[in-house]
């Protein structure tokens, strides 16, 4: 598969702060590439570097096989983006905004093209209303309309669901799926909310403090990841002590909500279970969690590294 985006050794230093630190990753054609990290992890800085809004301190970015520095205009002509809030000219109408950005994107803005585009994002009826009167969701749709007006190959959405209501979030999710599956676009989507990403991403990159924590296809991540056992016990401290004194000590995770958390490979669960029972720990319930979110929370909280994943 062809690499659409290839980033290597990307670093951005703002005075004393290293926002992005030696980050390398690649996005393949057709990917919905989930870009995960907590607020301030360096997602936005990375995305802005992909879009030439921020100049990297170090590292290389190539998109569509070309160096971003030397082929900026050609590359950007094939990229559509919504960065954070979908801000457009509030004193212009949806139609005027779209027309203006279509021109800037190098597209001849015919009335048909513009109306089709507005139709696609469900704003045809409000085409001539000034954006001032739009709700957040409508602005987001217009932003996406603008990002797509020149039919780009690569679409970059930075926190596209910020400030949207549940319906809006669902709409965005559906749109990403359509872009990817029906229109065969490559999409990079960033979020600090993993559950949004895990439903749509084909590949995921998790970064924290500007560094890559893990990158891989979501299938691999979900299959390979450790299962987290959430165990409700009668005596939490006694149970913890039991585990710490056993051969399973290194699997113990910080407790959460008064429950024991243990990270295990799936095949190890029965043995661990037997050990607990043999040690006389009273167990009320035992739940195996499969969510990437737990993993995400743990790794980004930086408390304990659970494991390494491979592609």
């Amino acid at each position: 598969m062809q690499s659409i985006v290839k980033v290597s050794g990307l670093t951005k230093q703002f005075n004393q702060l290293t926002a992005v630190n030696q980050l390398s990753f690649s996005v393949e054609s057709g990917d919905v590439y989930g870009f995960l990290g907590q607020n301030g992890a360096g997602k936005s800085t990375t995305i802005r570097m992909l879009l030439t809004l921020i100049t990297p301190t170090e590292g290389d970015i190539s998109i569509f096989g070309y160096n971003l520095n030397t082929h900026r205009k050609d590359i950007l002509a094939q990229v559509g983006a919504v960065i954070e809030k979908p801000d457009v000219y509030k004193y212009l109408s949806a139609y005027e905004n779209l027309k203006l950005f279509a021109k800037l994107s190098g597209v001849k803005p015919t009335h048909k093209l513009l109306m089709d585009q507005l139709e696609m994002v469900g704003l045809a009826a409000r085409a001539n209303d000034t954006v001032k009167t739009f709700s957040q969701g409508m602005k987001q749709r217009l932003g996406i309309g603008i990002a797509l007006v020149h039919n780009p190959q690569l679409i970059i959405l930075d926190e596209p669901t910020n400030g949207l209501d549940p319906q809006g979030i669902a709409d965005i999710r559906n749109l990403i799926l359509i872009l990817s599956r029906e229109m065969k676009k490559t999409v990079i989507v960033s979020s600090h909310l993993l559950n949004e990403i895990e439903q749509i991403a084909t590949r995921i990159l998790i970064i924290d403090k500007g560094r890559k924590l893990v990158e891989g296809s979501s299938a691999t991540l979900f299959n390979d990841q450790q299962t987290i056992l959430q165990i409700s016990v009668a005596n939490l401290s006694a149970a913890s002590a039991t585990i710490l004194n056993s051969e399973w000590a290194k699997h113990l995770l910080p407790e959460r909500d008064g429950q024991l958390m243990v990270g295990l490979n799936k095949e190890d669960i029965p043995a661990f279970n037997r050990m607990l029972a043999a040690s006389g720990v009273d167990i009320y319930s035992l739940q195996a969690r499969h969510s990437l979110e737990d993993y995400f929370l743990q790794v980004t909280a930086g408390k304990q590294h659970v494991g390494t994943f491979t592609n």
């Binding site: 802005r48 879009l51 030439t52 809004l53 900026r72 205009k73 050609d74 590359i75 950007l76 002509a77 990229v79 983006a81 960065i83 954070e84 809030k85 801000d87 457009v88 000219y89 509030k90 950005f101 800037l104 994107s105 190098g106 932003g143 603008i146």
Partner: peptide, 14 residues
Amino acid sequence: NMGTLRLLLTKPQS
């Protein structure tokens, strides 16, 4: 301030 600068500068223009 309006936030349009970043959108403007991601367009293929010098």
